Simulated assay, not measured.
Amino acid sequence: MKTGKQDMLKVYGIKNCDTMKKAIAWLDAHEVIYEFIDYKKAGVVQNHLPDWNRRAGWQRLLNTKGMMWKRLSDEERTDVDESRALALMTDYPTLIKRPVADTGGTLLIGFDDERYAQELKRGHP
């Protein structure tokens, strides 16, 4: 993990996720200073999910293509609205798309190297 200024990029996710590994490799290769925060740790999702939902919307946050979504019961996956989605993501943090990268101004959901380059390489050679 790289460290630096107080308002550095915060990258939330799960270390063993392939998408996370790609994002971290990109950040390291481009010398972007960041702090990694595992959102499986107690309190992370509860403390940040309301803000992420406000800034990005639950539809962008909810990962309906991953293994955890497939493991849910049909009842849990039926008629998902904002309230239900937030409750599911709180109960099962792996339902949140990874990574969630917070620049302080912009929230980047998932990994897209072009979007990362556009949003994060400002001021970097």
Rank of each mutant, 00 (worst) to 15 (best):
A25Y: 01
N47Q: 15
A117I: 05
C17T: 03
D28V: 03
Q118K: 08
D74N: 14
T19C: 03
T3F: 09
W58N: 00
A23K: 01
L9T: 01
Y34W: 07
T78A: 15
G123F: 00
L86E: 11
R122H: 11
A56I: 13
S83P: 02
V44I: 15
P93A: 05
F36I: 02
G105M: 14
G110V: 11
G123C: 02
Y116T: 03
F111E: 07
W69E: 04
A117M: 05
A42T: 15
E119A: 07
L9N: 02
D51A: 15
L49V: 11
H48S: 12
K41M: 09
E119S: 03
T103Q: 03
T106C: 13
G13L: 05
K40E: 10
C17L: 06
E35A: 12
V11S: 02
E75G: 07
Y12K: 05
L95P: 05
Y34Q: 05
T19S: 06
G4W: 02
W26A: 04
Y116F: 15
G57M: 12
E82R: 11
G66Y: 08
Q59N: 11
R71M: 09
Y34D: 05
K2V: 09
M68Q: 12
T78V: 08
D79S: 11
I109Q: 07
D102E: 04
L108F: 08
T78K: 15
P99W: 02
E114S: 10
I24Q: 04
Y92L: 04
A56P: 05
M67Q: 12
Y34E: 06
V100K: 03
K2G: 09
M8N: 12
Q46S: 15
Y12F: 15
I96A: 01
M20I: 07
S73V: 11
G57L: 12
D81K: 12
D81S: 08
T64A: 04
T90W: 01
G43L: 06
R77D: 02
R71V: 00
A101W: 01
R55P: 00
I14Q: 03
I96P: 04
R115A: 14
R115W: 08
G104E: 00
V80T: 00
P93C: 04
N63Y: 08
A85I: 10
R98Y: 04
D51G: 10
I24T: 08
K70P: 00
Q118V: 10
M89L: 09
L108Q: 06
Q6Y: 10
A56H: 11
D91E: 14
D79K: 13
Q118W: 02
V32R: 05
Y92S: 04
R55E: 01
Q6F: 14
D74M: 13
D91C: 09
P125G: 14
L108M: 14
K22D: 10
D38Q: 10
D28Y: 01
M20R: 01
A25T: 13
N63E: 06
D7K: 15
K121V: 14
N53M: 14
H48I: 12
D28S: 00
G123V: 07
R98W: 02
I33P: 06
T103K: 09
C17S: 10
T94D: 08
T3E: 13
